[in-house]
């Protein structure tokens, strides 16, 4: 035992050192693989989109026609880009007030025992797969809106200058507006979850002081909570916007996949992701390359929105850290 001791010890230490190194490099390479995935995404999108980039150049961005069957195919991104931006915009217009409202309800108004159930319900809303939203929008929400809300708005706004165009008929199961509403429901949990998180970072002393001088709940939220957490709330909103821009299955079901641009939000349209989802599997050659180019545009767009969101949230974290 005494004789074998030092020898075994050296060997054991070497084994440890070797294991240590292997583990270190395994973790390090895994971490670097994240960067490889990002560059892989960018490179493969550019490689796939290259033929379309060479063929159409920047004209791709302002060509309205989308005719992959024509000879030679004419491809323009205006329709999908318009649909993507418009649906996301309407979705955010609905989801921001509602999401913030729920966050205020959960942090300021709700009785303690109800907080957890409602919080969980809202978070489960985020867990439902997007194809389920699509089916539900197609079979339940679409017919409901086409029978009630849409005819009502069309009748109300008929003849009014601008509104008349925005809410022009006929009612439709498949429309930009239906897609926007579904998108709003889907991103709602993201806005609520992040807002609740950042609302909780407000020091209770600040709120108590405001309540102490006689502020109402609304005044506390408006003048203390929101200003204190503004950056974080905006970050959460941009994160939700990033989601809305790239959401695919739900939108594909209910937007109608029409490449024309119509002033009415009750008309069918398409988005970048819906166009890719519905056409990519059956496409080839220049058509496929054009869809790749659309994908690249979408990725660049969401990348900047999400990067902006993260920078804002980071800023808030640093503030909380200080």
């Amino acid at each position: 035992m005494d004789v074998a001791g030092p020898y075994d010890r050296a060997r054991a230490l070497n084994a440890f050192k070797f294991g240590d190194n292997v583990f270190y490099w395994a973790t390090r390479l895994s971490a670097i693989s994240v960067l490889l995935i990002l560059s892989g995404i960018i490179l493969s999108l550019i490689a796939g989109a290259w033929p379309a980039m060479r063929e159409y150049g920047f004209a791709f961005l302002w060509t309205r026609r989308w005719a992959p069957e024509a000879d030679p195919p004419v491809l323009g991104a205006v329709g999908p880009i318009y649909g993507t931006l418009l649906t996301s915009l309407i979705a955010m217009a609905i989801a921001i007030p509602v999401g913030l409202g729920i966050a205020v309800f959960l942090t300021e108004l709700c009785p303690q025992w109800l907080r957890r159930p409602i919080g969980i319900a809202i978070e489960l809303l985020a867990g439902i797969p997007s194809i389920i939203y699509g089916m539900w929008g197609f079979f339940v929400l679409g017919p409901f809106l086409a029978d009630t809300f849409q005819p009502f708005m069309i009748r109300m706004c008929a003849g009014v200058p601008v509104l008349g165009t925005i809410f022009a008929g006929p009612p439709s199961y498949l429309s930009l507006f239906n897609a926007s509403l579904i998108l709003a429901i889907m991103v709602l949990p993201f806005i609520t979850a992040i807002s609740v998180d950042v609302f909780k970072t407000v020091p209770p002393v600040l709120k108590e002081a405001a309540y102490g001088i006689g502020c109402t709940t609304w005044e506390v939220v408006r003048n203390v909570v929101i200003p204190y957490t503004r950056v974080g709330v905006i970050g959460g909103i941009m994160l939700a916007l990033g989601r809305a821009l790239g959401e695919t299955m739900a939108v594909t079901f209910i937007i109608g996949n029409a490449f024309r641009i119509s002033g009415s939000i009750f008309a069918p349209g398409t988005t970048i992701s819906a166009a890719i989802a519905s056409e990519f599997a059956e496409s080839a050659g220049l058509h496929q390359s054009g869809l790749m180019l659309l994908g690249l545009l979408l990725f660049v767009l969401t990348f900047f929105v999400l990067a902006g969101a993260r920078l804002m949230l980071l800023r808030l974290e640093q503030k909380a850290g200080n």
């Binding site: 790239g246 990519f280 994908g295 969401t302 999400l306």
Partner: peptide, 22 residues
């Protein structure tokens, strides 16, 4: 890496489909 990962966390899943396709 942390920043890029946070972006990949919410990147559109259809883009990941395009990436794997290519």
């Amino acid at each position: 890496i942390r920043f890029i990962n946070d972006i990949l966390l919410s990147a559109p899943s259809i883009i990941i489909g395009l990436f794997i396709y290519g």
